[in-house]
Amino acid sequence: MSDALSTEFIGRQKAWLRPAHLTRFALIALGLAFLSFFLFLPLAAVFAEAARRGFPAYLAALSEPDATSAIKLTLFVAAIAVPINIVTGVAAAWAVARFRFFGRNLLVSLIDLPFSVSPVIAGLIYVLLFGAQGYFGPYLRSHGIQIIFAVPGIVLATIFVTFPFVARELIPHMESLGSAEEEAALTLGASPWKMFWTVSVPNVKWSLLYGVLLCNARAMGEFGAVAVVSGKIRGMTTTMPLHVEILYNEYNGPAAFAVASLLAALSLVTLGLKTLLEWRYADSLAARRKH
């Protein structure tokens, strides 16, 4: 360890005065202070404000019909958006990580695009397409199909903002693994699907799960894109984050924070699972460590 090494070199000074130790202490303290200020304090605020009116009020805020329907809608949207993104993410990763073709780099950039598009724009584009004044809206409306201000619009906007998550985790991992094992399976006579399910998927399953976790967290928590397309019909098109905003605007701070605390708890579970994955499967995730 270099600490031992540097200790030797500066051994003449008193231990606590050693610059290395002082810096170390100062840096840790500074880092902690920064995190407390920007991360822990907001998190604490959510739970503290939620607890303000006591536990019965907290439970009442979560079991009220509009809240339960928001919870259900959020789960429903994630249950559609996440599987779709798994399929497309795996397909994209397979195409990008296993083949070299013209336009590959452009494809990677396009897959990443939703990351850097403002969520508001993600909502706006679907309004422009499917709104009653939009390009396809009048046709769909005349056939009784409602997309904007209904669940399909919320699902679409959610798929948009979570589109890159799975592919982004898979591509670097699959590239680092190389295709030798898959080629071997084919040589040994495995069918393409058998190779895919017995070699490719098991090899990357932890980074796949990792991507799914992040995708799911974002799908459940998306606000901006969903706010633009939702219409905020209480009990029908309000997801949990929107319900938080509505309650907040109804002077119902404690209820807003109660629902918010549920979302925060969900994000803590996500973090816990993610950390667990990183600790236990560090090796197979090693290729992944970047965002």
Partner: peptide
Amino acid sequence: AAIDLPFALPTAVAGIAL
């Protein structure tokens, strides 16, 4: 582990907390 909190915490929740 906590560093990733902003990835996982819904932005609206962060907004009202801040």
